[in-house]
Amino acid sequence: MGAGGGQINVAPERTMMSNTLRPPAVAGLFYPENPAELRAWVRAALAEAPAHPPARYLIAPHAGWIYSGEVAAAAYRCIPPGIRRVLLMGPVHRVWTPGLALPTVDAFLTPLGPVVLDRAAIAALATLPGVTLDDLPHRDEHCIEVHLPFLQSVIGDFTLIPAVVGGASPAMVANVIEACDDGRTLILVSSDLSHYHDYDTAKRLDAQTARHILSLDDHLVGEQACGAAAINGLLYYAKRHGLGAELLDLRNSGDTAGTRDRVVGYGSFALRPAA
């Protein structure tokens, strides 16, 4: 058992047998579509990322890899051995959902192959307050997809619980984490930080946001991080279970592959049981 306890029981009557795949929406746009090129990119990014102690609770960015992939790699390097499942939560960019939306498909497809969903867990989570089954918010959403090739490369075989978070409260998100946190599940929140400020302004704002995250302040807003709702839920859960946060990397697109007049901020964080 991990930091959480009281995992919910599966409700078989809610299981939906769709036998379908969610195809890639941003392969070739946000990350390489060619499998060999993709694997080489992952190897290089992981090799250059700084080493940190293992952590099962992570926050990582989700922009195009040339902009945020190196920052995200710092989080992926923290993934401990023995992970068998990933709860991956991120914001809705295209189709709003009032709480958390989970898909009904059987797998998410990437250029490296399918990532099978934990359908039994998804069916059980759908009984929680604020959680719905809805494929539409996932169809064109990139915040989950861009992490999957890295996770496939680092973990290998695992099952996935992908959740997009719209208007969910921190308590709603924390309840989902609680239900999934069995000691062998990676909890990964997908979020970028500030958007479209000049370089110096973004550096200042993102440093402030990082301080809020490190202090487990679960009152972030969308202007600070597009995944604020999911981050707030993780921080709420962290306070409930005595986790502390560490900053792994903090940069923006002006540091990686973009101009410095309008940048997007990226941060990677790890949360672990406090000493």
Score class of each variant (00 low, 15 high):
residue 1 M to H: 12
residue 2 G to P: 15
residue 2 G to Q: 12
residue 2 G to A: 10
residue 3 A to D: 14
residue 8 I to K: 01
residue 9 N to Y: 15
residue 9 N to E: 13
residue 11 A to F: 12
residue 12 P to W: 00
residue 12 P to L: 00
residue 14 R to H: 04
residue 15 T to R: 14
residue 16 M to N: 13
residue 16 M to C: 15
residue 18 S to L: 11
residue 18 S to E: 13
residue 19 N to V: 14
residue 20 T to M: 05
residue 22 R to W: 02
residue 24 P to L: 04
residue 25 A to P: 10
residue 30 F to L: 00
residue 33 E to V: 11
residue 33 E to A: 14
residue 33 E to S: 14
residue 39 R to K: 15
residue 41 W to H: 14
residue 43 R to L: 12
residue 47 A to I: 02
residue 47 A to K: 13
residue 48 E to W: 05
residue 54 P to D: 09
residue 55 A to C: 08
residue 56 R to F: 11
residue 58 L to S: 07
residue 62 H to G: 04
residue 63 A to G: 06
residue 65 W to T: 03
residue 65 W to V: 06
residue 67 Y to G: 02
residue 70 E to A: 15
residue 72 A to D: 03
residue 72 A to R: 01
residue 77 R to T: 07
residue 78 C to K: 03
residue 79 I to H: 11
residue 79 I to M: 07
residue 79 I to D: 07
residue 89 M to I: 05
residue 91 P to W: 01
residue 95 V to N: 14
residue 95 V to G: 12
residue 97 T to F: 13
residue 98 P to E: 03
residue 100 L to N: 00
residue 101 A to L: 04
residue 102 L to G: 08
residue 106 D to A: 15
residue 109 L to R: 13
residue 112 L to H: 08
residue 112 L to S: 13
residue 115 V to W: 04
residue 116 V to Q: 13
residue 117 L to Q: 09
residue 117 L to V: 08
residue 117 L to S: 05
residue 119 R to C: 06
residue 123 A to F: 07
residue 126 A to N: 08
residue 127 T to I: 09
residue 128 L to D: 00
residue 128 L to I: 03
residue 131 V to K: 01
residue 133 L to R: 09
residue 135 D to T: 03
residue 135 D to F: 08
residue 136 L to Y: 12
residue 137 P to N: 04
residue 140 D to F: 15
residue 144 I to G: 02
residue 147 H to E: 03
residue 147 H to I: 02
residue 147 H to C: 01
residue 149 P to I: 07
residue 153 S to V: 10
residue 154 V to C: 08
residue 155 I to A: 05
residue 156 G to V: 10
residue 156 G to K: 01
residue 157 D to G: 12
residue 162 P to G: 01
residue 163 A to P: 13
residue 166 G to R: 05
residue 167 G to E: 00
residue 170 P to I: 08
residue 170 P to R: 06
residue 172 M to I: 10
residue 174 A to H: 03
residue 174 A to K: 01
residue 177 I to T: 04
residue 178 E to M: 06
residue 178 E to N: 07
residue 179 A to D: 03
residue 179 A to Y: 00
residue 180 C to G: 04
residue 180 C to D: 01
residue 182 D to C: 09
residue 186 L to P: 08
residue 189 V to N: 06
residue 190 S to H: 06
residue 190 S to I: 01
residue 191 S to D: 07
residue 196 Y to V: 02
residue 201 T to C: 08
residue 203 K to M: 15
residue 207 A to N: 10
residue 213 I to M: 08
residue 214 L to Q: 10
residue 216 L to H: 08
residue 216 L to S: 07
residue 220 L to Q: 04
residue 220 L to T: 03
residue 224 Q to P: 09
residue 226 C to W: 09
residue 228 A to V: 12
residue 229 A to G: 01
residue 230 A to D: 02
residue 233 G to I: 03
residue 233 G to R: 00
residue 237 Y to H: 08
residue 238 A to N: 07
residue 247 L to T: 10
residue 248 L to H: 06
residue 252 N to V: 07
residue 252 N to C: 07
residue 252 N to Y: 01
residue 255 D to L: 07
residue 257 A to E: 09
residue 260 R to K: 10
residue 261 D to C: 12
residue 262 R to D: 12
residue 264 V to I: 12
residue 265 G to D: 02
residue 265 G to M: 08
residue 265 G to K: 00
residue 267 G to I: 09
residue 267 G to P: 10
residue 268 S to N: 10
residue 269 F to S: 10
residue 270 A to K: 05
residue 270 A to S: 12
residue 271 L to W: 04
residue 273 P to L: 00
residue 275 A to C: 15
residue 275 A to G: 15
residue 275 A to Y: 13
